[in-house]
Nucleic acid binder design. Structure first.
Lengths: 189, 189
DNA sequence: TAGTTTATCTAACGCTCGTTAGAATTATAA
DNA sequence: TTATAATTCTAACGAGCGTTAGATAAACTA
């Protein structure tokens, strides 16, 4: 088996196990056995179990987040957020598991304190990004603070439904729910 | 140490550890050591680690949920839901940890499949209960389905903020966010 | 071809885990 | 007081854990 692919295969299996059984419930032996290799092979590619887990969160999870954050063209607010949420349905299974793992750590349900803190700071960043994005579109008399925080709460739960509960949400439903919050609060084009 | 109190103390410590370190990250030895007793004492009161965990979810978590579901007097919808969410701030720390543990299992982040399925069926029940509660208050032309599902998504995330992320949400903010979804959709008194 | 690097293995070390056997202690009841 | 029941203990079993030492095989390089 050639270097690059095999290292990736190990991570793929690791993601699967971390996702299904958590950090403590996952064993290097299980990963090795499913990868069809001996136990020390895992250590040939990854320094330790902890490093493997950290890399998945710090590198792979953040890659997905960054890829999402790139598309910040925003003509119509409701279109934008509908697309943003809907596209989560179409993530491949591997990325979905990584995303799920990231949320699990973010909520403090897995991983160590270092990792949780790491994610916390990013998510704070996200909140103010939404505010910047939304505020210019709001009608002047609106209470922007509340609208943004309500929107974020809705978004977070929609994301959780798709990623964590593994449900499919139709685009029309996403759009309608977002419209309930935004429709009469934003300026007409 | 007398029977009843000591058994309760064990559970209190167990909840703390399960909450902080998950099922696999929690050890009977740690529980015993923190309880200041020998290891087999835990087995004197609980058949196994699994039974202890199951009891916390199936009994204690559901007790909290049931207690909440009791107060279904519902004069003003926004008042009702504001109170419902706000009161979560005032849960004692023990109940909050149990609630948090329940959410963790509900999201499939801990516990075994039996437990996850157990919670799934209850939460389905809850969804239709909200529908029954809300629909009579809606103006006739409204799309009830979407309003109810949006409300549930908002509620779930508010609950998660308080219980899982351990934030305090002021009553006024809760009320304002709920109003964004409900205010112009419900009949005037 | 000989030497070096890369990939992979078997075997084990030291530790912790959930659980239990079986004895000692304490409280209760006769 | 003695017998029974309720608590609590020390000590261990067998299994699984993360990790590593050190040998072997395969693939490159000179």
């Amino acid at each position: 088996m050639e270097d690059k692919n095999f290292k990736a295969k190990i991570k793929q299996i690791a993601v699967d196990h971390f996702d299904k059984n958590g950090y403590y419930g996952t064993t290097i032996r299980n990963i090795a056995s499913e990868a069809g290799c001996s136990l020390p092979m895992i250590y040939y590619y990854y320094k330790s179990k902890k490093e493997l887990f950290h890399e998945i969160i710090k590198k792979d999870y953040f890659d997905i987040l960054s890829r999402q954050a790139e598309q910040i063209e925003c003509d119509n607010l409701i279109d934008f957020y509908s697309d943003f949420v809907y596209e989560l349905n179409n993530l491949n299974e591997f990325d979905k598991k990584i995303y799920r793992l990231g949320i699990k750590v973010y909520l403090g349900f897995d991983g160590d304190d270092e990792l949780i803190e790491y994610l916390d700071s990013w998510e704070k960043n996200i909140a103010s990004r939404h505010a910047q994005l939304v505020k210019p579109h709001l009608k002047p008399q609106q209470n922007a603070e509340v609208i943004v925080s309500t929107l974020i709460h809705l978004l977070e739960n929609l994301i959780e439904s798709i990623i964590v509960k593994n449900r499919f949400l139709p685009k029309e439903q996403i759009r309608q729910e977002l419209s309930i919050i935004l429709a009469d609060k934003i300026k007409n084009k």
